[in-house]
Amino acid sequence: MNRPAVALASAAALFFVLPLAGLLGRVSWGTLGADLSSGAARDGLWLSLVCSVGATVLSVIGGLPLAWVLARMRFPGRSLLRGLALLPLVLPPVVGGVALLSAFARRGFVGARLYEWFGVQLTFTTAGAMLAETFVAMPFFVLAAEAGFRSIDTRYEDAAVSLGARPFTVVRRVTFPMVAPSLAAGAVLAWARALGEFGATITFAGNIAGRTQTLPLAVYLQLESHPDVAIALSLVLVVVSLGVIVAMRDRWAV
């Protein structure tokens, strides 16, 4: 039984390895430095960093209370809420972008008010790119954080209460430190997802060099005009993704 399994497993492993090997083969190592410091690449790298970190912060700010409510409270419609919060995980990102447009574009029911009252326009702005990335990244954080909140024994919180801790102290000194590893893992996953975001970003925030053209967009659009730059940027994304996998191996390789 083992031998056919090994054969099939090898084939599956090759399926993952070969494209990456092909990518490595196409990297022009001699000009890698110059490719990565070219204008479009530098803009893309910087913008991706800003947007993905911003999206991660937004995901934590919004995802933490959401995960808490989902993990700790019982109320009608909780499953529905969880389903909605996790929907972007399976939703095609372009659809997410279209949905964001219908809410936050200048003619969207929220976007119209934002523009009318505050003069704020999210589409075609870096903030919009961040928002699009948050939309697809937050579920990763919510998922990890909710699992974290569920996995801790609430009797530890009882113990803290019995020692005289106020609710805020319990959360700060007992609950958070105990779920910290889950929160960190969720944040890293959300960040990696935000970094790779393409569909929702290009649909909602557009593709403006230096403003909303993040790494994946730059890869896609440089592929024809400057394939070397596109490959070099792809290499950066592969290395970062690999780094995330290695950093998280303790959580996944049980």
Partner: peptide, 23 residues
């Protein structure tokens, strides 16, 4: 200026930025 140009991958995407988006 390039900073106020959003680039569509093809003509349909370019038009969609006006029809659906805020261009």
């Amino acid at each position: 200026p390039e900073g106020s140009v959003t680039r569509g991958a093809d003509v349909k995407a370019t038009l969609a930025a006006v029809a659906e988006g805020d261009a």
